[in-house]
Design a protein around this nucleic acid. Structure first.
Lengths: 211, 211
DNA sequence: GGGGTCATGTAATAGGTTACATGATTCT
DNA sequence: AGAATCATGTAACCTATTACATGACCCC
């Protein structure tokens, strides 16, 4: 499970996928990815794209098809998917869909070290996070609705729907955690607070100051 | 928002955090991180740790405190947190807790390219994923229960509780999506299937096996 | 007493990001 | 015509992962 791929960057998967529709030169790929909003789902930057295409070429998954020059612009090399590339695309996508891989989201990291901050501060920070999460949810919803309104089939926005579901869960979890931290009946808050030289869990509403 | 940190690797954050409790040498850090199960929350590998410690030293966040030799083992350099390091720790943790950052989970990537596989295949792959997700949930639950049973305060397992919530959401989302794909009333499945030369959405029931 | 594996660290390699470079097109 | 931005690519620089190295301890 989870083989070592010759090329491991997820951007390469997108490249394979787009080349399976027609041969393109790197810049066109770049453009297409951005236009499709795939840069929200796949970490993308100009420089890496060229690197990835080279890697794919070296691995035999794509092949240089022709080199055209249009006007006085630099030459553009057009790449096409090879049979090996088509196989890799299928195999890789299959794997990614079937096997949930172990990942390290920043929030997990932060939570695992959260005890290093005093609880009062954590409370105010998490309130802030809730706000940001609400904004992100709204943006995502708008984006989805906008795309659907243009007649694009839902299939092409499921990744955003998924993201939305995760945002909601994160928000609910955060609220839930906030409650527990502020609940005077939670046993561990006292120890946590006193470790930081604080006394009781903050229970009051408002204010942002930190003396 | 989201400053450029002199040292950006999350592993560095863990190092700062542990050094805030007492000075240690890299190997002890390594050991402590593993023992605390932090390698589930922070990508960790032996080599990177030494690199990160060096980077932190260069950035002035930690300082070499002494070099001891015990028996005939190689010298171990003990590092201590500096004031700048303490400040960085607080600031960084605050940021990570407050600001949800944009991320690229593999499942999001996979979903965004899912149309490249035929729906019938997708159905069977996602059934497989559901199984894996169930396993992961069970493991996580066991882990949490085990730790709590040893009297560790809940605060030190919230990251696992969070992970669990996300796993559940992912599973529910996947089930929901599976239903839609297989529902003959979903408008876009037909086009998807025929694009891949298939005809109708698969509707058959049964089987759970995982080889 | 020889085979594993623990303890500890360094060096080589590969991977990815940023910065640089430059002609073309469009805008004002 | 000059400014800004697009189009296109290369190169330099960081970062991270793997591989390598070596003495000590433990097991049978």
């Amino acid at each position: 499970m989870a083989k070592k791929r010759k090329v491991g960057n997820p951007l390469a998967l997108a490249v394979l996928s787009y080349l399976s529709q027609k041969p393109m030169h790197p810049y066109e790929l770049s453009r297409t990815l951005r236009d499709h909003g795939d840069d929200r789902s796949i970490k993308f930057n100009h420089g890496s794209l060229y690197m990835v295409v080279q890697q794919l070429a070296k691995a035999g998954f794509v092949a240089e098809q022709e080199t055209v020059r249009e006007g006085q612009r630099p030459e553009r090399t057009v790449y096409a998917l090879t049979d090996a590339g088509r196989a890799e695309l299928r195999d890789w996508l299959r794997e990614m869909l079937e096997e949930p891989g172990f990942e390290y989201p920043r929030f997990v990291t932060a939570l695992s070290l959260i005890a290093a901050l005093p609880p009062s501060e954590v409370v105010s920070l998490l309130r802030g996070r809730l706000y940001h999460l609400a904004v992100a949810q709204e943006e995502t919803t708008k984006l989805i609705d906008g795309v659907l309104a243009q007649g694009v089939p839902e299939l092409f926005v499921i990744e955003e729907q998924y993201r939305l579901a995760q945002l909601r869960t994160e928000a609910r979890f955060t609220e839930e955690f906030l409650k527990r931290v502020q609940d005077p009946d939670t046993e561990w808050t006292a120890a946590w607070a006193s470790f930081h030289g604080e006394s009781a869990p903050v229970d009051d509403a408002d204010e942002e100051e930190q003396p």
